[in-house]
Nucleic acid binder design. Structure first.
Length: 608
RNA sequence: GGAGCCAUAGCUCAAUCGGUUAGAGCGCUGCCCUGUCACGGCAGAGGUUGCGGGUUCGAGCCCCGUUGGCUCCGCCA
């Protein structure tokens, strides 16, 4: 017989009755009735009830084993007595009467309960992640992640894509997020960088003639964390295609995502437009109607412009500023404290406050700024927003249109949650298209790339030569689902002259392009195909499919908000020898780092 | 870099307006219990209320500072 098991803990049924079996697993729970003792034995596959009979010589010893001890048991499968089956367990019709057992792994006092799965501080969960991962909720999420990725690979292959690997140690990129740097031992003073994305490599693969590329690609960016943004590293479903238009890229995503999401969340609604397409919203429209470039379309609220209504107003807070309004139903009867809370939230977001009026009988307005709104403007506001008696109209005004829009964008999401307006159990996808190619750097006022410098400007060279750069749009697009930016992509610029010109507009001479994008600009001069792609975030896809609000719930070993791995204790100091090897000295060694460095050789020795 | 919230037993939480010996459930230890499945019952151990300072006759509670965590802003081509 196998030393550990003949069956798994999720396997036994009535048909196994009478067989002698061997099971191994964790002691999940224990019910000691004095005479008879029940153990729930758990492994990856399930839970099986083990019975220790009253006359067993080892009953006292086995009853003292703590939860999460790993044991092996031998025993006979039998059908449970009438009325004692457990319908909640797949194995609940049977039990195993233990004849012999062996402890395979002892367990100390636990820092957290595996069962029942009560709330535990995240710091504890991350420090003891291997315990957290045993709990069914997280265990299931991680397994689901594995299945989602397997499904993605199968679907991408079926769509004609080939999977490639690209380097992890590569060159630092001049734009974008901060790089993680890796010092070179062989080249003193030089550094590798971990890729922020395999952007140039995938384009080079297209120029190498491979036509359809994908990769479940690790990406590294040294930026601060958010609930939907892991610090340091994350995975993208990176893809790129040759000889395609924007519509061709969209078609691939529309063939991939709806069936993928239906596979893993089959009961949820996934509304699509005719032909199975995602709605397309221009960047400008999204900023106007939703105040963000990643609108949550499950929330049935829409922002309207009211700039013209207050253009010459005597109300200085609104006059000659961009004014946006948001009608909200169902909050007029909220107490004053609720509206005060909104003021605090608005201030937190950097606004002066959040002006509002409530529509009353007869079309009059109530509220702190009601006296500044003339009857004519009131009528027009009601017409534009559709506000009726009992509705509240919120205002946002700023000289910078995007700030005015942004405040109501945040408030729109806030109201969605607060007033329970979010359409339940639904995935609302959309495309955001026509992103601007350039934007004004708010600090320097200079023209800079707005997103990806490798995107093809709409209108090509002619647009670059004739248009105001700030009006040029790019073939640059995002997929958004339920207010989460799943991915961004673009049709790339494959024409060297247009590339040089675009960089010139952004303030970089040809020598910069030649130096920093040497491989790619070179490849573009030797017959580059038109190409484009997109890179949906795998972690965010799994987060949506698992219906989790936080990325850490779908990552096996995540870092905390401060980019620390509490389980592996990273980052950590290194020894002086390691630093010397890579020609580094610490600029400002803090006291604790010096102490840690002294201890490092010991851990190094342990490894060897 | 900045803001908000949080920090009480191993874990989840409570402790009235600042007032007697800081409580309960889970877990742990011991005992009882022959059909439980979140088993039940009895008893017990377990606390520098994150840390430092202050106000006060008296601080878990108020004030200041600090550390850590989460969320958000900046940042994320």
């Amino acid at each position: 017989m196998h030393p550990y098991r003949s069956h798994t803990c999720g396997e036994l049924r009535q048909s196994h009755a009478g067989q002698t079996v061997r099971l191994s697993g964790w002691i999940h729970n224990r019910r000691d009735l004095g005479g008879v003792l029940f153990l729930d034995l758990r492994d990856h596959y399930g839970i099986t009830q083990i019975v220790v009979p009253p006359n067993a010589p080892f009953q006292d010893a086995i009853s003292r084993l703590g939860k999460e001890t790993v044991i092996r048991i031998d025993g006979a499968v039998r059908i449970r007595p009438d009325g004692t089956a457990n319908a909640n367990l797949p194995t609940g019709d049977v039990e195993v009467v233990v004849a012999e057992y062996e402890v395979l792994g002892t367990c100390q006092a636990l820092p957290m309960n595996i069962f029942p799965e009560d709330h535990t501080p995240e710091e504890t969960r991350l420090t003891y992640r291997f315990l957290d991962l045993r709990r069914s909720a997280l265990h299931h999420n991680i397994l689901q992640r594995s299945r989602v990725i397997a499904s993605i690979r199968r679907r991408m292959t079926d769509l004609g894509f080939n999977e490639f690997q690209t380097p992890i140690l590569t060159a630092s990129s001049p734009e974008g997020a901060r790089d993680f740097l890796v010092p070179s031992r062989l080249h003193p003073g030089k550094f590798y960088a971990l890729p922020q994305a395999p952007q140039q490599f995938k384009q080079l693969l297209m120029m190498s003639g491979f036509d359809r590329y994908f990769q479940i690609a690790p990406c590294f960016r040294d930026e601060d964390a958010r609930a939907d943004r892991s610090p340091g590293e994350f995975y993208q479903l990176d893809m790129e295609m040759s000889f395609v238009t924007q519509d061709d890229v969209f078609a691939v995503c529309e063939a991939l995502f709806p069936p993928l999401f239906a596979e893993f969340q089959p009961t949820w609604k996934l509304p699509l437009e005719d032909g199975g397409k995602f709605p397309r919203i221009t960047y400008a429209d999204a900023m106007l109607k939703y105040g963000v470039d990643k609108p949550d379309l499950r929330i049935p609220l829409e922002i309207k412009d009211a700039t013209d209504l207050f253009a010459g107003s005597e109300f200085k807070a609104f006059a000659n500023k961009t004014v946006r309004v948001l009608k909200v139903t169902g909050c007029a009867d909220k107490p004053r404290s609720w509206f005060d809370g909104l003021q605090d939230l608005a201030k937190k977001l950097g606004a002066q406050g959040l002006a509002y009026v409530i529509v009353e009988e007869g079309g009059t307005l109530k509220g702190p700024i009601a006296k500044f709104v003339t009857p004519a403007v009131t009528a027009e506001l009601q017409a534009r927003t559709g506000a009726v008696v009992g509705d509240t109209i919120f205002f946002s005004a700023h000289t910078d249109a995007s700030i005015a829009a942004g405040l109501l964008g945040h408030m729109r999401n806030h109201f969605g949650r607060e007033l329970n307006l979010i359409e339940p159990n639904t995935f609302r996808f959309c495309w955001i298209v026509d992103f601007p190619m350039f934007e004004k750097d708010p600090e320097t006022g200079a023209v800079a790339f707005s997103h990806n410098p490798f995107s093809m400007p709409q209108g090509g060279m002619e647009a670059l030569l004739t248009q105001d750069p700030l009006t040029i749009k790019a073939f640059q697009y995002d997929i958004v689902c339920n207010g989460i930016e799943l991915s961004s992509g673009a049709i790339r610029n494959h024409v060297p002259d247009i590339m040089y010109k675009a960089f010139e507009i952004a303030g970089y001479g040809p020598e910069v392009v030649n130096d920093r994008f040497k491989g790619m600009i070179n490849a573009m001069k030797f017959g580059a195909p038109p190409h484009g792609g997109i890179a949906p975030g795998v972690d965010r896809i799994v987060m949506l499919l698992a219906d989790e609000p936080n990325l850490r719930e779908v990552i096996a070993f995540p870092m905390n908000q401060n980019a620390q791995d509490l389980l592996m204790n990273a980052p950590s100091p290194v020894s002086d020898k390691q630093l010397r090897d890579v020609h580094l000295s610490l600029r400002k060694p803090p006291g604790q780092a010096a102490a840690g460095a002294a201890a490092a050789p010991a851990s190094g020795a342990a490894k060897a």
